[in-house]
């Protein structure tokens, strides 16, 4: 089992190298990448914005409940901002991205495999990794940090809505303490995480789709594996990056 897992990791790494080799050629056709940013990003906006709002509102409630026990409810803005920027924003967005955009990518590529579209490209002497896979990977990598940024902003709005609007935290304290306490490295931590999650989730999706068995069951299996592997990988990478940032 361990050997099989290592073999799989090796296969994914080789696939990544193969994609990276085709990225310069894919970058020469930016329209395809923009199209994929739209597919992965814009089409995930509603679910990301709704989730961001609710996560922010819950953060406002839980944060207020915790902080008021110590008489520090004015620090709610800082708590919400750091929680969203460093942790909840990147992680929850990546999990949603894996469920929405990742599955769409895997099933689309898997269906292209099942309907001989990828083989037809090979037969036209056109490398499907350059024309299909690389634009989708690059699109996913660009889209996820943008979605995280939107999630963070909406989340902060949700926390403010509950904390200031419902719980009566002072609006000035909410925003000014946030401005004073949040540093650029906190934003950088969130950005780094979202970039890493973008690579991981998009890579898993395109790998599973590209290597799907060309059957209905195979495409379904690839889609399921995309969600499971992406989610576990996101949480694993999150722990490693958090530990690395805290050790600095």
């Amino acid at each position: 089992m361990i050997v099989a897992a290592l073999r799989r990791v090796g296969a994914v790494a080789l696939f990544l190298v193969r994609i990276l080799a085709q990225c310069p050629a894919a970058l020469a056709k930016p329209r395809a990448i923009v199209h994929q940013i739209h597919n992965c990003g814009a089409r995930s906006l509603i679910i990301i914005m709704l989730s961001g709002l609710f996560v922010g509102m819950v953060l406002g409630l839980q944060g207020y409940d915790l902080l008021q026990r110590f008489g520090s409810e004015s620090a709610l803005g800082v708590a919400a901002a750091l929680g969203l920027l460093k942790e909840l924003g990147p992680v929850v967005t990546a999990l949603l991205f894996a469920g929405r955009a990742g599955t769409a990518l895997a099933s689309e590529i898997g269906l292209m495999r099942a309907t001989d579209q990828l083989t037809a490209m090979e037969m036209m002497a056109v490398d499907p990794v350059r024309h299909v896979i690389a634009p989708r990977l690059l699109g996913g990598i660009v889209a996820l940090p943008l979605l995280v940024a939107i999630f963070d902003v909406i989340g902060l709005f949700g926390a403010q809505l509950v904390g200031v609007g419902m719980m009566g935290v002072d609006a000035g304290a909410f925003w000014s303490q946030m401005q004073a306490a949040v540093e650029l490295r906190d934003v950088a931590e969130g950005l780094t995480k979202s970039l890493c999650f973008g690579v991981a989730c998009s890579l898993v999706a395109v790998y599973e789709g590209f290597h799907a068995e060309p059957t209905a069951e195979g495409v379904g299996l690839a889609t399921t594996r995309t969600v499971v592997v992406s989610s576990v990988l996101t949480l694993l990478i999150d722990y490693l990056l958090t530990a690395a940032f805290l050790a600095r």
Binding site: M112, T115, D116, Q117, M123, A125
Partner: peptide, 19 residues
């Protein structure tokens, strides 16, 4: 192999058009 395939065309059973 790609150079060889440029000299041939293939019609697939289901057409295999890019959807």
């Amino acid at each position: 192999r790609y150079a060889m395939r440029r000299r041939m065309g293939m019609l697939f059973q289901n057409g295999a058009l890019l959807t």
